[in-house]
Design a protein around this nucleic acid. Structure first.
Lengths: 242, 242
DNA sequence: CGGACACTTCGGCGAGCACCGAAGTATGGG
DNA sequence: CCCATACTTCGGTGCTCGCCGAAGTGTCCG
């Protein structure tokens, strides 16, 4: 029998790629990954209820995702907390989700979905940074002030790095994660700020009370204080956030 | 029966995400996608032989990939040519491949694989831009000359844009594709230049005879002329390419 | 120490799907 | 015009995998 594939290296790589994709290729596991995009750790039971499957089923799925390196787990007493393994996995899930979003973003069906959808569209977290109209508004404002360049790529300027220092949020590179990275926003269909700077800004916004989480999902709401600060600091009009 | 998933919007998104991943989750389809990463169009028969499956099987796989929007097809007489649908799909496949590569890149097995692997490691195309040690050397050289910034993100400088003009390869933005983008190199495990600039440079390198393709896969070889030009233009030592 | 709770393991069921070969359709060359 | 070639369609087969409920393990609390 002739070995037709040009090299077994290529076949090995294909097998690994297929194995990785298989982890995402199940609707329940995909729902889990999307839920964990909020950057927080969920218990196995929460995820089971969220995805609408039996606890035993969810347990098996989490086992596969952990074994595949997509999730990290932490045991606390009788709870099993899981979260996305790292920023790289989050980026992968976001990229995949952005690829399919254009097809689904179009039409909200019911009123409930519509209002839930619009809360997500106004502002949400995307793993560890801000997204939705809020994320876009911040990204645009930073760009307009010359703190971020988008025309030739996606990078902070020296003034941008300095601005974060002034905010009391110095940026430190950890590992290979870039200071600034573009993340495609699936409601706005434009890139918003991710990377170390995006994460630092989001954490600061939540810590300083510029915005708060709504419910148990990814949506966030800008507070009155947040509106004031964003207008003052970045010139963002409240209307851009509605 | 209680609808447990918080919103059916979330379930719909999960279903789409799973459907997309399913396309990649088969070893044969994964092999096809990796083969097409060379940026060229292959016939259905070539891909069937490459992947080691019957023509009928390959035909079904290509049908699914086209229907899923990952491939574009062109019929010419009795041939069906397919290629990756666009740069965005290529980026997705590259990102997925980079995620699994760290596990597979470690150990070549046989001499044949080793030499094939090292040709790929020296230089190759990654959809439409240069990768491998060649791609890294070019990226580093551009950075060292102040034409590309990597410290605060990944963007050309104004001098960088000008440099491309001087090369006779003016950069024009098409759609939403960024001029510069980081693509993680799975042999070097560091980012190399992709995006409009990466594609333009690769095309120019092939057109001007700086490098040529080896065999029918993605590997490329730097010519003598290429070595001269790269040393002259970017200060790249020939040793960095070996 | 006993019961409630969170999670895991196991057996079994059913659906989906990758695969092939054979037969059918379209194209190009002699 | 006929045959070789490239691809597609179809029916059938076997395997994988997601799912559940029941039973088991470990943890917390009264």
């Amino acid at each position: 029998m002739l070995v037709c594939m040009t090299s077994s290296r290529a076949r090995a790589e294909a097998a690994l790629l297929a194995a990785l994709a298989s982890l995402v290729a199940d609707e329940t596991r995909a729902a889990v990954l999307l839920a964990l995009l909020d950057g927080r750790a969920w218990t196995a039971g929460e995820l089971a209820r969220y995805a609408g499957v039996a606890a035993s089923t969810a347990s098996e799925h989490l086992g596969k995702l952990v074994a595949g390196g997509l999730l990290a787990e932490e045991r606390q007493g009788r709870h099993r907390y899981v979260r996305l393994a790292d920023a790289r996995v989050a980026q992968l899930v976001e990229d995949l989700a952005a690829q399919v979003a254009p097809a689904s973003a179009a039409r909200p069906r019911t009123l409930r979905e519509s209002s839930a959808g619009s809360a997500m569209a106004r502002g949400r977290t995307c793993y560890d940074h801000l997204a939705g109209r809020l994320g876009i508004a911040v990204t645009d404002a930073l760009t307009g002030l010359g703190l971020l360049r988008q025309d030739t790529g996606f990078a902070l300027t020296d003034e941008g790095v300095h601005w974060f220092d002034g905010l009391g949020v110095p940026l430190v590179r950890t590992g290979r994660r870039p200071l600034a990275r573009a993340c495609l926003d699936w409601t706005e269909r434009r890139p918003h700020l991710a990377g170390v700077a995006g994460a630092a800004l989001c954490r600061h916004a939540l810590d300083a009370g510029w915005c708060v989480r709504i419910g148990s999902e990814r949506a966030v709401k800008v507070t009155d204080k947040g509106e004031r600060v964003l207008a003052e600091l970045l010139g963002i009009q409240a209307a851009a956030l509605r």
